[in-house]
């Protein structure tokens, strides 16, 4: 009986309270719009002010990478963002139709010596709690960013318990 309740609890926790889907053109001028949307949805999700800034930074950098590296500034393309608002976190899925990329090919950013290459990806990893990349069955690049609400416990893939940053 307890197991059934636990399963129900888990299902309830994993069911998004709200889902917001946004489709934008791959034009750099759309970044301002995405930042405004990210701020509003971060607030709706219950993130703190600092966490909202971090979410904005991660979404901004991930979108910039799609425009610059995936679509190579071809403004006729578009990409999609899905915001899933859950009880303890917000998940943002970015999806584009460009060729799959090799995450290991990205140079790492060194603050003392770098000219700025790899900084965007570094910022994404530092701004959110989890980052996952995959190619979907339909061949789309899919990047998932997860940000936990402040104070909520995070059980990451290594089994380490931390709190949302």
């Amino acid at each position: 009986m307890e197991k059934v309740d636990n399963k129900k609890d888990i299902e309830e926790r994993e069911r998004p309270r709200e889902v917001v889907e946004v489709r934008v053109s791959s034009h750099p001028k759309m970044m301002r719009v995405l930042r405004a949307i990210s701020e509003e949805i971060g607030s709706l999700a219950g993130l703190s002010e600092e966490q909202i800034i971090h979410l904005q930074i991660a979404i901004d950098e991930a979108s910039t990478n799609i425009i610059r590296h995936a679509y190579k500034f071809d403004t006729s393309k578009e990409f999609k963002l899905i915001f899933n608002l859950l009880e303890d976190r917000i998940e943002v899925v970015l999806e584009d139709n460009a060729s799959p990329f090799q995450p290991e090919s990205i140079e790492s950013f060194d603050s003392a010596n770098s000219a700025g290459g790899g900084l965007g990806v570094t910022l994404i990893h530092r701004a959110v709690d989890e980052v996952d990349y995959c190619v979907t069955r339909s061949g789309c690049n899919q990047l998932k960013l997860v940000k936990y609400l402040a104070g909520k416990e995070v059980n990451n893939r290594e089994g380490i318990v931390a709190t949302g940053k």
Binding site: R35, Q56, E61, T64, G116
Partner: peptide, 12 residues
């Protein structure tokens, strides 16, 4: 707002 492109410009 400033993104990584802005920072890269300042580093350069």
């Amino acid at each position: 707002y400033m993104d990584s492109s802005g920072i890269a410009t300042l580093i350069e």
